[in-house]
Amino acid sequence: MQIIPTDLPEVVIVEPKVFGDDRGFFFESFNARRFHELTGIATDFVQDNHSRSARNVLRGLHYQIQHPQGKLVRVTAGEVLDVAVDIRKSSPTFGRWIGVVLSAENKRQLWVPPGFAHGFVVRSDYAEFLYKTTDYWMPEHERSILWNDPAIGVNWGITGDPVLSAKDVQGKLLADAEVFA
Rank of each mutant, 00 (worst) to 15 (best):
V14K: 11
E15V: 02
G20F: 13
D22F: 14
R23K: 14
F25N: 08
F26E: 08
F26I: 14
E28G: 06
N31H: 15
R33D: 15
R34P: 01
F35M: 01
E37N: 13
L38S: 08
T39W: 03
I41P: 02
A42N: 12
A42F: 00
T43C: 14
D44C: 05
F45P: 03
Q47M: 08
D48Q: 11
N49I: 13
H50E: 10
R52I: 07
S53P: 07
S53I: 07
A54Y: 12
N56I: 08
V57R: 10
R59M: 06
G60L: 06
Y63W: 12
Q64E: 01
Q64V: 06
H67W: 01
Q69L: 04
L72H: 04
V73F: 10
R74H: 13
R74A: 03
A77I: 07
G78S: 08
V85D: 09
R88P: 01
S90C: 08
S90G: 09
S91G: 06
P92S: 14
T93F: 11
F94M: 09
W97K: 01
G99F: 13
G99R: 05
N106H: 12
R108H: 09
R108S: 03
W111E: 07
V112Q: 04
P114L: 02
G119S: 03
V121H: 11
V122H: 14
R123L: 15
D125K: 13
D125F: 03
Y126G: 00
A127R: 10
Y136F: 15
Y136I: 04
E140G: 00
H141I: 01
E142S: 04
L146V: 14
N148W: 03
D149H: 05
P150L: 12
V154K: 05
G157W: 10
